[in-house]
Design a protein around this nucleic acid. Structure first.
Length: 594
RNA sequence: GGCCCCGUGGUGUAGUUGGUUAACAUGCCUGCCUGUCACGCAGGAGAUCGUCGGUUCAAGUCCGAUCGGGGUCGCCA
C-alpha cells in the first residue's frame, strides 16, 4: 500500500473512528513538548487533528517527535482514541479524539515560515504575496479555493445539463482597437507583428454561433492592460456564455436559475427569482449609478424645477445651462460635525462636482450657508420635496447631468456606509436594462460603445441610430448584486449592414472596419442566427460569496497594484537573444542581465 | 498621470518638543517539564529603523527625492 493509499483525512476524525488505525500525512501546525509526552497538531487540507507521542512508542519515534518543528512534513501511523475525560477540545472539530502515534516519519523539514500559518492573519500583504505558497496553506485561503472549485463545478454541471458545449477559444488573437488596452505578444515568425491576449472571447463566441454550435460556455481567462483596483486584476476569469435564437427574456431567467444554484450550493442561501429589474435611466435618476446598491434608501431627488428661478445662482445657473440639480436627504445625519460635512464636499469634488450644498435641519430650524438665497416658501418646498425632518441633512449637487449622477451616486454610498444604513446579510440582485448603446467620448471626439460594438440596438430605437445616436438604447443587460457589477451581456448584431453602421458611428472607416473586423463582417453574410449572451466575472462572484473585500484573496496567484507577481518577480527583463529573435528593441537602458 | 495612507529585530507594534543603551508582545534557539491545545518555567540570540541625499553638534524622529505595498480619481468597449 502506498502512503496515499492508506491515508486518512485527519481533519475529519470523530469519536466514531475511535479504535481505528490511521495514517496521517500533513504538516506540523504546532508542537507542545511536555518533556514526557509530546503533542503535535497535524494539518492537512481537511483540517487539524492532535497527535500524541509517548516515550514508550516503538523505535526512535519519540526522539523523532522531539525534533519536530512547525511546518515539518510528516507521516504518522497511529490509533485513534477518545481523548481522556476532561481534555477534550471543544474549539477543534476533531477535539474529541487524538491519534496515538505508533510510527513517525519526518518526510521533510521546514524553515520557520515568515508568518504564521493561521486564519485572521495580520501581516503585510507584500509578505503574503512573496510567499504565496505559504499563504495558501492557511485554512481560509484553502476554503476560498475549494469554494471557487465548487462554483465552477456547479457552472459546468448546469450548462452541461442545459445542452451547452464548453469550447476553448484562442489566447493569441488579433488586437482590436475598441475597448481596453491590449496585452501584446510579439510574433517571432512575423517580424514586427503582434498578437493580443483576449480581453474576452467575444468575437470567437459569436463565430461559434455562426458555426451552428448554438449553445456555448467557457470559464476563461481574460486580459486587460489597465490600472488595477481592489476588484480588478490584469488577468481575470469570466464565465462566458452565448446562445443562438435567443432574446433577453431567454437569457435572464436562465442566469437567475444558475445564480440560485450557486448560492444554494455554496452559502446555502435561497435566492428568490425573478430578480428585480431597473432601466439604466431609472438607475441613474434614483441612485446615480448603473450598478445601484438597493439595500438602502437615500435616493436621489429631483429639485431642478424648484430652484430654477431662485436667487441661488449656482442652482439656477446649472438649470439654465441645461444641467441638473438633485439632492439626497441624509436621514439622521444632522449630528455630523462640520468638519465631516466639509470633508464630504472634498469627496464629491473627486467626481467632478464643484461643491456640495447642504441644509441642516434641526428642531430650531434650518442651518445652511445657502438658505439666505431662498425665500421661506422656496425653502419649505425643497424640504417637503426631499422629505426632510429635523435631524436630517439635505445635500445638493448642481452640474452637468453626468456629474450630478456620479457625485451624488458616490455620496449616497459614502453616506450609507457612514450612517450604517447598509444591512448585512441581504442579497439584492438586480438586472439593469435599456442601457444607451453609445456615449460621446470628449477626449477622442467620437462615439464609443458603452457595452461593446457588437451590441444590438433595441428594435424600436434602430431608426435613431441615423438621427440621434446618443438616445439609442441597446439590448444590453447587467446583473448587479449589492452594488457590484457581476456581469453583463447583450443581444448581438447579426446583420452585416447594422454592424457596418455601428462601426461607422464609432468612427471606423470602411477600410479600418474591414482590416480589423472584416472576418466577422464576412461571417455575417453566411447565415448568422440571431444570438446573444452574457459574461460574469468569476473572481468578483467568489469575492461576494466569501465576503472578501478584494479580488486578490480569491485568486491563487494574484498580482499587485503595479501588475507584478512578487513571488516569481514577473514581469522581468529578458535576454538580448530573446529580444533579437522577436525583432524587438526597447528604448529602456538597464544594467545588463544574465 | 493625480490625490491619500503605510514602510522600525522573523512577524505585529511602541518610540514624546530631534539627545546618547531603539522598547513590548509573539516567533526562533538552548535547558527543564507526562495531558497540553496561544502549554508552562528559566536563559539566550536577533535591528545598519525601505533606499539615497539634505538640515543639524546630533535624525527612527525634520525636509527632499526614490523604491515597494495598499486605497482611490482618471482609465477599465
Amino acid at each position: 500500500m502506498t502512503l496515499l493509499g492508506e491515508r486518512t483525512a485527519g481533519g475529519r476524525l470523530r469519536s466514531e473512528q475511535a479504535g481505528e488505525t490511521v495514517r496521517l500525512l500533513g504538516w506540523i501546525q504546532r508542537r507542545r513538548d511536555h518533556g514526557g509526552v509530546i503533542f503535535a497538531d497535524v494539518r492537512d487540507r481537511s483540517g487539524l487533528v492532535q497527535a500524541v507521542f509517548n516515550p514508550d512508542m516503538p523505535g526512535d519515534g519519540f526522539a523523532q517527535a522531539e525534533r519536530l518543528r512547525s511546518e515539518y512534513v510528516v507521516s504518522i501511523r497511529g490509533r485513534v482514541r477518545l481523548r481522556p475525560e476532561g481534555s477534550e477540545n471543544g474549539s477543534l472539530a476533531t477535539g474529541a479524539v487524538e491519534v496515538v502515534a505508533e510510527t513517525l516519519d519526518i518526510l521533510n523539514r521546514a524553515k520557520t515560515p515568515p508568518f504564521y500559518i493561521e486564519d485572521d492573519l495580520d501581516v503585510d500583504e507584500t509578505l503574503r504575496l512573496k510567499y504565496r505558497y505559504l499563504d495558501l496553506r492557511r485554512p481560509e485561503m484553502q476554503e476560498t479555493l475549494m469554494l471557487r472549485h465548487r462554483v465552477t463545478q456547479i457552472m459546468r454541471n448546469f450548462f452541461d445539463g442545459h445542452g451547452f458545449l464548453e469550447i476553448e477559444t484562442p489566447m493569441l488573437i488579433k488586437s482590436s482597437p475598441e475597448g481596453a488596452r491590449d496585452y501584446l505578444v510579439p510574433s517571432r515568425v512575423h517580424p514586427g507583428e503582434f498578437y493580443a491576449l483576449p480581453q474576452s472571447p467575444q468575437i470567437f463566441k459569436q463565430l461559434l454561433m455562426v458555426s451552428g454550435l448554438e449553445k456555448y460556455f467557457q470559464i476563461v481567462r481574460c486580459f486587460r492592460d489597465e490600472d488595477l483596483r481592489a476588484d480588478r486584476q490584469p488577468e481575470f476569469t469570466q464565465l462566458d456564455v452565448e446562445m443562438s435564437f435567443v432574446e433577453m427574456e431567454d437569457i435572464l431567467p436562465l442566469m437567475e436559475e444558475l445564480m440560485a444554484l450557486i448560492f444554494a450550493g455554496t452559502t446555502g442561501r435561497q435566492i428568490a427569482a425573478p430578480f428585480a429589474r431597473l432601466t439604466y435611466r431609472e438607475g441613474m435618476e434614483r441612485f446615480g449609478s448603473d450598478k445601484p446598491d438597493t439595500r438602502f434608501g437615500l435616493e436621489l431627488i429631483e429639485v431642478g424645477d424648484l430652484v430654477a428661478d431662485t436667487e441661488f445662482k449656482v442652482f439656477a445657473g446649472a438649470v439654465a445651462k441645461g444641467g441638473r440639480v438633485k439632492g439626497i436627504c441624509a436621514k439622521g445625519a444632522a449630528g455630523l460635525p462640520r468638519r465631516e460635512i466639509d470633508g464630504l464636499s472634498d469627496f464629491v469634488r473627486t467626481f467632478g462636482a464643484k461643491g456640495l450644498a447642504y441644509i441642516v435641519l434641526t428642531a430650531e430650524g434650518v442651518k445652511s450657508p445657502i438658505a439666505k438665497f431662498f425665500t421661506e416658501e422656496q425653502l419649505q418646498a425643497l424640504i417637503k420635496r426631499m422629505g426632510g425632518k429635523a435631524g436630517d441633512i439635505l445635500f445638493f449637487v448642481a452640474d452637468k447631468e453626468q456629474v450630478v449622477f456620479d457625485a451624488l451616486g458616490h455620496l449616497r454610498l459614502e453616506l450609507g456606509r457612514r450612517l450604517n444604513l447598509i444591512p448585512v446579510g441581504v442579497l439584492n440582485f438586480l438586472w439593469l436594462t435599456e442601457f444607451p448603446l453609445l456615449e460621446y467620448d470628449e477626449t477622442e471626439k467620437r462615439y464609443v460603445a458603452i457595452h461593446h460594438p457588437f451590441t444590438s440596438p433595441m428594435d424600436e430605437d434602430e431608426p435613431l441610430l441615423a438621427t440621434n445616436p446618443l438616445s439609442t438604447r441597446a439590448k444590453a443587460y447587467d446583473l448587479v448584486l449589492n452594488g457590484v457589477e457581476l456581469g453583463g451581456g447583450s443581444i448581438r448584431i447579426h446583420r452585416r449592414e447594422v454592424q457596418e453602421q455601428m462601426f461607422r458611428l464609432l468612427g471606423l472607416s470602411r477600410e479600418d472596419a474591414e482590416a480589423k473586423f472584416g472576418y466577422l463582417l464576412e461571417a455575417f453574410e453566411y447565415g448568422t442566427p440571431p444570438h446573444g449572451g452574457i459574461a460574469f466575472g468569476l473572481d468578483r462572484l467568489i469575492m461576494l460569496l466569501t465576503g472578501k473585500d478584494n479580488i486578490r484573496d480569491v485568486i491563487a496567484f494574484p498580482k499587485t497594484q503595479s501588475a507584478a507577481d512578487l513571488m516569481s518577480q514577473a514581469p522581468s527583463a529578458v535576454s538580448a537573444k530573446q529580444l533579437n529573435e522577436l525583432h524587438l528593441k526597447t528604448d529602456i537602458v538597464r544594467a545588463k542581465i544574465g
